[in-house]
Write a protein that binds this DNA or RNA. Structure first.
Lengths: 159, 159
DNA sequence: CGATAATAGCTGCCGAAGCAGTTATTGCTG
DNA sequence: CAGCAATAACTGCTTCGGCAGCTATTATCG
């Protein structure tokens, strides 16, 4: 961008990408958590299961990074999911420090129950969007995420 | 949308609006929190101050709703901000149950220090965006938020 | 106008997240 | 290959968010 989009003097929260993303995120939680709770899952537990299922993160380390979750907290969360028989932990053979998290049949079954409800909700939220608009939203969000990752990789020092 | 965008059988986390919004939100926090911490603010404290400054929420009730924060937790957070002299609480005269939250001069000063840093970061993240792309992202995010609010207002029952 | 319901904010309690430190394993460097 | 740094997962402690209950005030409805 040749010129900066925002300026400190005129910055207003309502038109800030950050604010809008936070607000959208909060509303998504408000909508999905009650639904998931009815099936005995917190949103974080659901997020862990889905991340494993779709290969976004296959071990605790990546789950922490991708879900922005504390390492200690994740250990205990996996303890729960494991004791409920939804996931299994296996020590990796290539790197014996690491652990591989797998969905059990029960874990996959739980997701098969819950995913349609989630999908319905999201579709319902998108009911006034054209197909092209959703595509564009996804593209821009991905671009935003890449930009953020780039910034963070740059070390977090002042630009 | 005449046809549903997502389908349970083919649903993949990576292309889900929900996932992308959550990821963008998490990365934004990763980027902003260290910056704010250097100035003695948590992100939530910053969000409260900004919400009051920009008239998004002027009392604890609206702050809870807009920031999706627990009422009890917010009371204690406001206690802190008040004891540090960044905000003031005044009982409303129209409704004596309610409280009006105001920024003090010190609160405004703190924001004047911090806002430019936040703005720089956001601009830096948006550096590969055209002006039109940011406009479109803001429009779509606002539309998404409206859709979510509509769903929630509809009562949260199954669609 | 009186009684009951609803609302705003606060408090206590509990569970989950964040932080620091530990152990086991691997990578790096001389 | 020896020694030290880095990494992955886990544990204990602290802090913060979520929940239920309480008080004061306002709205509702007979």
């Amino acid at each position: 961008m040749s010129k900066q989009y925002y300026h400190a003097e005129t910055y207003d929260t309502r038109s800030s990408v950050g604010y809008l993303v936070k607000r959208a995120h909060g509303l998504a939680l408000d909508m999905l958590e009650p639904e998931l709770a009815r099936h005995g899952l917190t949103f974080t537990q659901y997020a862990v299961l889905m991340s494993v299922r779709d290969g976004i993160a296959l071990n605790p380390k990546d789950l922490c990074i991708q879900l922005r979750h504390d390492s200690g907290a994740l250990t205990r969360l996996l303890d729960q999911l494991e004791s409920r028989g939804l996931v299994e932990r296996h020590r990796s053979v290539e790197d014996r420090r690491a652990i591989e998290v797998h969905l059990t049949a029960a874990g996959e079954e739980a997701l098969r129950t819950v995913i349609p409800l989630v999908v319905n909700r999201i579709n319902s939220v998108l009911k006034d969007f054209s197909h092209a608009e959703v595509d564009e939203l996804l593209r821009l969000l991905n671009k935003l995420i890449l930009g953020w990752q780039g910034e963070l990789a740059a070390g977090g020092q002042q630009s």
